[in-house]
Amino acid sequence: MKLGLSTYSLHGKLSSGDMTVLDVIDYAAEHGAEHVEIVPLSYSLTDNPEWIDQIVEHAKQRGIELSNYAIGANFLTDSEEAYEQEIQRVIREVDIAAQLGVKLMRHDVASSPNVSIANFNTHLEKLANACRRIAEHAATYGITTSVENHGYLIQHADRVQTLVQAVNRDNYKTTLDVGNFVCADENPVAAVQKNLPFASMVHIKDFYLRPADRNPGAGWFTSTSGTYLRGAIIGQGDLDMWEILRIVKASGYDGYLSVEFEGMEDCLIGAKVGLDNVRRIWDAV
């Protein structure tokens, strides 16, 4: 197992301009991380290709692996032309992943206000076709692409598996976010067990949960059925992180664990405590 940090964890500092991606790599190295996951939110490697070599070289200097490249995408488009443009855009992002030297890349698949199983089934083959084409391009670099349980429409464990099986490529798997299942009102312990065999990467995230009839106020969002959710420092939220990490460890998973902090606390504190807690819990279970 290699424990590391998603640059998304320090999104607050990146978006304010207080830190750069190179600073995040320094922060990760100073707090015992073994890898950094590149998530271009608040920055763009497409618009700033000169940063790619800088990131690769700086990570090498700090002894940090670059583990994964994670981007947004949505293949539920208004036209066939837009659908093809989105596929080609993501294919170009695969080329960036190759320049980074990573062997894992997550791209989102779909976002829709209609999260029904009927809508999922209607668009499954269209979504699978896009992912299949991208995976085939990624295979030329030896890169495994993946879908995350993310975005409501494809957030349930069974839907993730269905898409992975429909794509039917050896280098197409899932980035398994242990926390995101609660957004679809699934038990994360059970859902993690279901999807671990399909995982290329594991994100560690925690949440606070409150009943739908008890609005906690600003800073919270809702699950599909209305449960209130808020990001938490890993190990301090309402998820059974001990049992989740025990299951991951017992499965024999020996890949990357990536800390994702998205709470209201200071992100520098949230990321550090998250790293410390995952390391401590992993050793204990």
Score class of each variant (00 low, 15 high):
Asp213Pro: 05
Ala135Asn: 05
Ala128Cys: 10
Ile25Trp: 03
Ser6Gly: 13
Leu41Met: 13
Tyr8Glu: 02
Phe207Cys: 04
Ser251Glu: 05
Gly101Asp: 09
Leu45His: 00
Ala33Asp: 01
Lys194His: 05
His11Asn: 13
Ala130Pro: 02
Val202Leu: 09
Asp283Ser: 14
Asp18Tyr: 10
Ala82His: 04
Glu50Leu: 07
Val115Trp: 12
Ser111Asp: 10
Leu104Lys: 14
Tyr141Leu: 13
Asp108Gln: 05
Ser116Tyr: 12
Ser15Lys: 15
His107Val: 11
Asn171Met: 04
Asn215Phe: 07
Ser9Trp: 04
Asn48Met: 07
Asp213Ser: 09
Glu37Ile: 13
Asp26Arg: 13
Asp254Ala: 15
Asp185Leu: 01
Leu196Ser: 01
Thr162Val: 08
Ala157Tyr: 02
Asn277Asp: 04
Trp282Ser: 04
Lys249Phe: 02
Asn168Cys: 00
Val90Trp: 01
Ser225Trp: 03
Ile25Pro: 07
Val109Phe: 09
Arg279Cys: 01
Ile134Glu: 10
Ala97Ile: 07
Lys13Val: 00
Leu275Arg: 04
Gly151Asp: 06
Ala250Pro: 03
Glu93Lys: 05
Val278Met: 09
Arg230Cys: 15
Phe75Leu: 06
Ile244Cys: 00
Leu176Arg: 08
His203Pro: 09
Asp26Glu: 13
Gly237Phe: 09
His203Phe: 14
Gly17Trp: 11
Ile204Ser: 00
Val21Cys: 00
Ala28Asn: 08
Glu243Cys: 03
Ile134Leu: 06
Leu5Val: 11
Leu239Tyr: 12
Ile234Val: 15
Ala135Val: 02
Tyr172Val: 06
Gly226Cys: 12
Glu243Trp: 02
Thr144Gly: 09
Glu84Gln: 15
Gly17Cys: 02
Asp240Arg: 11
Asn121Gln: 13
Arg210Cys: 06
Ile52Phe: 02
Val285Met: 06
Val178His: 01
Ala70Cys: 11
Thr20His: 02
Glu80Cys: 01
Ala284Ile: 00
Thr227Asp: 04
Ile117Cys: 10
Ala138Gly: 11
Asp266Pro: 06
Ser225Tyr: 04
Asn119Lys: 14
Asp266Phe: 11
Asn149His: 09
Pro40Cys: 05
Asp23Ala: 14
Cys267Gly: 01
Val167Tyr: 05
Val90Ile: 14
Thr46Gly: 02
Gln193Tyr: 02
Asp23Phe: 12
Asp18Phe: 08
Val259Gln: 01
Trp220Gln: 00
Ala191Asp: 08
Lys60Gln: 10
Gly237Asp: 07
Gly101Ile: 06
Ile38Val: 11
Asn74Lys: 11
Ala135Cys: 06
Ser223Leu: 11
Asp266Ala: 14
Ala271Asn: 10
Gln155Phe: 04
His156Val: 00
Cys267Gln: 15
Leu124Glu: 11
Val94Arg: 10
Ile96Arg: 00
Asp108Glu: 08
Val21His: 05
Asp177Arg: 03
Gly235Val: 11
Gly12Tyr: 10
Val202Ser: 05
Gly226Phe: 12
Leu257Met: 10
Leu245Val: 08
Leu268Arg: 12
Thr174Met: 07
Asn149Met: 00
Ala82Met: 01
Ser116Leu: 13
Glu34Trp: 06
Val278Phe: 03
